[in-house]
Simulated assay, not measured.
Amino acid sequence: MRVEDIDWTSICRLDEIVPDTGVCALVDGEQVAVFRLRSEALYAIDNIDPHSQAAVLSRGLVGSLGERIVVASPIHKQHFDLRTGECLEMPQHPVRTWQVRRDGDLVQVRRGA
C-alpha cells in the first residue's frame, strides 16, 4: 500500500452505483452520499439534509440546473451543488463535500476530507 492511500476508504465497486444515482457509505462514523454520473464523474457530499436532519441525500434526484450538477433532497426538494455543497435555495445551509476518486474498479472517499 502506498503512503498516500492511507487516508482513502473504499466504498464499493464502480459498477455497483447505477449512473445518475447515489449510494450512502459510512466513513469515519459519518454518512457520505457518493454519486456517479453517466459521464463516470464521481462526487461525494454529506448525506444529512441540513433542513430535515434526515440521512437522505444519497437517495435524491441527480440532475442539472444551468451549469450546476445538483442533487435534489427527497424531503424538501432543495438542490445541493455536487461540486461545492452549496444549497441553491438556501446558501446559508451548505453540506460538506468529500474528495472522491476511482482506483481501478473501486470508488474511494478520502477520510477526514
Rank of each mutant, 00 (worst) to 15 (best):
V71Q: 10
T21E: 06
D103S: 14
P74D: 06
C87H: 03
G63W: 08
H93M: 15
A44G: 06
H93Q: 10
R102W: 04
R111M: 10
P19K: 08
I11E: 01
E30C: 14
V18T: 14
W8Y: 14
T9W: 13
A72Y: 02
K77H: 10
V34W: 01
F80M: 04
H93S: 12
G63M: 06
S64R: 14
I69M: 06
D81Y: 04
R68V: 15
T84L: 03
T97N: 02
G60S: 12
L57G: 04
D28A: 13
C24S: 09
Q99A: 13
E67N: 14
R13S: 12
E89W: 04
A55P: 15
R2Y: 12
Q108D: 09
H51S: 12
Q78W: 12
H93K: 12
S10K: 09
H76D: 15
I48G: 00
T9I: 15
V56T: 07
A44V: 00
V27R: 01
G85R: 01
E4N: 07
G66S: 03
C12M: 09
Y43Q: 04
A54G: 07
C24T: 12
R68H: 12
A55K: 04
R36N: 02
P91V: 01
H51K: 07
C12K: 02
L65I: 14
G29P: 02
L106N: 13
S10G: 07
G63H: 01
G85V: 02
S39E: 13
R102P: 04
S39P: 15
I11M: 13
R110Y: 04
V95H: 09
F80Y: 12
P94M: 12
F80A: 03
P19Q: 05
P94H: 08
T21D: 02
V71A: 11
L61F: 12
R102Q: 15
T21P: 09
L61D: 13
V95I: 13
A41I: 02
T9Y: 15
W8T: 08
G112Y: 10
D81Q: 08
E67P: 09
C24A: 10
P19N: 06
G104K: 03
A41W: 05
S64F: 10
R59N: 06
I17P: 04
R13C: 08
E89H: 04
V71S: 05
E16C: 08
H76W: 11
R36C: 05
V107G: 00
L88M: 11
V56R: 00
A33C: 06
D49I: 03
P91F: 09
H76G: 06
L14S: 10
E30K: 15
F80V: 01
T9A: 14
L88Q: 09
D49E: 12
V95W: 10
S52A: 11
I48E: 01
V3D: 11
D20M: 14
D103W: 07
R36Y: 00
V62D: 07
R59Q: 10
A44W: 00
R68F: 03
E89L: 09
D46L: 00
S10V: 09
D105F: 02
D105K: 02
M90V: 15
V62A: 05
T21F: 05
M1W: 07
D81F: 06
D28M: 07
E16I: 01
R110L: 13
M1E: 11
E4I: 08
